[in-house]
Design a protein around this nucleic acid. Sequence first.
DNA 1: ATTCTTGCAAAGAGTTTGCATAATA
DNA 2: TATTATGCAAACTCTTTGCAAGAAT
Lengths: 127, 127
Amino acid sequence: MKYSRQREVILEEVKSRYDHPTADMIYKAVLEKIPNISLGTVYRNLNQLVEHGLIRKILIPDDSDRFDYCLSNHQHLYCTDCKNVFDIESDVLKGIDAVIEKETNYTILSHEMVFTGFCERCNRKKD
Amino acid sequence: MKYSRQREVILEEVKSRYDHPTADMIYKAVLEKIPNISLGTVYRNLNQLVEHGLIRKILIPDDSDRFDYCLSNHQHLYCTDCKNVFDIESDVLKGIDAVIEKETNYTILSHEMVFTGFCERCNRKKD
DNA sequence: ATTCTTGCAAAGAGTTTGCATAATA
DNA sequence: TATTATGCAAACTCTTTGCAAGAAT
C-alpha cells in the first residue's frame, strides 16, 4: 500500500478506541483532523485495512458493521439494550477452525462470531 | 400472529430448502405460488418469523443475509469461491453461551457464527 | 513518469416504511 | 368491528464506484 495521510489517520483512529465504531463514527472522528476527508475515502481505506489484516470488521445482527483493531483472539458481545459492542476475553474458541476442519471436508480460513445479550451495565439497570 | 397465506407459503419455502436462500431468492420462489406477492411482504414476514424463532437469519461477511429453518445446533460455512452457504454438523459449540456467561458478567441470549473458507466441491476444483 | 489515492457526487444494493385496501379473528 | 396483513411505491441506510485532480514512489 502506498502511503496516505488519510489511511494513517484512519488506522490510528481505529487503534485508539475501544468502542468498535461504525464507518460513519470513524468518518466523523477523522473529520476533526482532516476536515475535507470524504466518507468514500473512509470506506475505501477501512476495506483495504481489513483486506491487509490490520483491522477487522465485525458483523452485527440488524445493525451496521463495526471495526476493531486486530489484536489477540477475543470475542464480541452486542448489547441489544444499549447497542454497544464489548470485548469478551475468552479462549474457548481457540483453535476452533482447525477442529472444524478436522471434523469436515471444508477448508476453514476464518470465522465470525458475535454474541447477543446484555452488557454489565444494562444487566444492572434491570435489577 | 394472525394467519396469512403469504406467511405460510414463505415459511414452507424456507423449510423445504437447504441452500440458505436470501430474501430475494425466497421472493422469486414464492412468486410461483403467489404471483402478486410483493418483496416488502416477504421481508416483513421473514423478519417476523425470525422474531418468533421459527427461522433464523445468517449474517454473511460482505454478502446479503440468508435465512434458514431453525433446527438443531449447527454451524454454517460460507464458501468464498462459490458464494454458497453449507451446514456444518458439529457440537463443539454446544453450551458455549452458558460458558461465556459464567466467564463474564454479561447475559448471553444467543450467538451468530459463520465460518469462511471453501466447500468440498471448491476444494476439489483446486487440485 | 507511473501508479495509487483522493474528494466529490452519483449510483447501487438491500431493506424498510407509509398508506389505502383487503383479509383475519 | 378491531386488528393485523397486503401490495405498491417511495424512501432510507449503508456502501460502492466513476472520474478528474492530486499525491506518492
